[in-house]
Design a protein around this nucleic acid. Sequence first.
DNA 1: TAATCATATGAACAATCACTCATATGATGT
DNA 2: ACATCATATGAGTGATTGTTCATATGATTA
Lengths: 127, 127
Amino acid sequence: MEEDKLVCSEKCPHFNKINKVKEREPKADEYLKLSNMFKLFADETRLKIICSLLKEELCVCDLCELLNLNQSAVSHQLQLLRNSKLVKFRREGKQIFYSLDDEHVELIIQMALDHIVEEEEKNGKLL
Amino acid sequence: MEEDKLVCSEKCPHFNKINKVKEREPKADEYLKLSNMFKLFADETRLKIICSLLKEELCVCDLCELLNLNQSAVSHQLQLLRNSKLVKFRREGKQIFYSLDDEHVELIIQMALDHIVEEEEKNGKLL
DNA sequence: TAATCATATGAACAATCACTCATATGATGT
DNA sequence: ACATCATATGAGTGATTGTTCATATGATTA
């Protein structure tokens, strides 16, 4: 949130590069939406919920069991996922069943896992 | 961080489903690493840094210009990205040039963008 | 229509985090 | 050696966030 203070000498900022980046980069509101999306994946509890729903439709109490967490905490996180349209739900009597509402989610997580595995191979094996 | 309090009736938790999920789900330390990875993408500043480095190697002051943010803030975020091996750097005189150190990053961001675009189409066009 | 069950929600609190300010480091030129 | 430039780092602070506790809602059953 700063302005007008040039960081280094007049020669330093590489304006050709900077302009190239500016041309191609996401727009301001896309950055916001992207970071909000990644925030949802950035918490272990939500991540476990998402991964649990990848292949199975589950009710709230199933998720409590799986996460070993109380109902309120789970419901609060489900609300966030609902608001962002990442999960959908249906009522069946007293229970409410949640499931994923997106095809990209699995790919995003898989790719992040690939990164982690590769990172571990780099560090673990070659040193 | 709770235990022993069964959330709903004995009939409710669908143990067959729960066990299926448990078989396939990531391990505890993988969840931790995943969420830590996504935390890096979950902040607008870091996201802008990452996207800026997608195609161009840039020095710290270039990033300050691009993000319109002071040098200290940028350096702090770069440190986080460095620690997680998401970016690498090389010295050239007084300047330090940063670049991405991962091939998955671009795919992850692209997929998240796809999700956002699709979401907008769903909401904007069809209603 | 009470009572109960599954889930949702509001308020409060502790922990985390991104930024700022001040200062340190490490390379360059004089 | 000294001043300067580009960047890094530590401490402090306000804002955000995940969890808990208490309570509300909405469907079922007696």
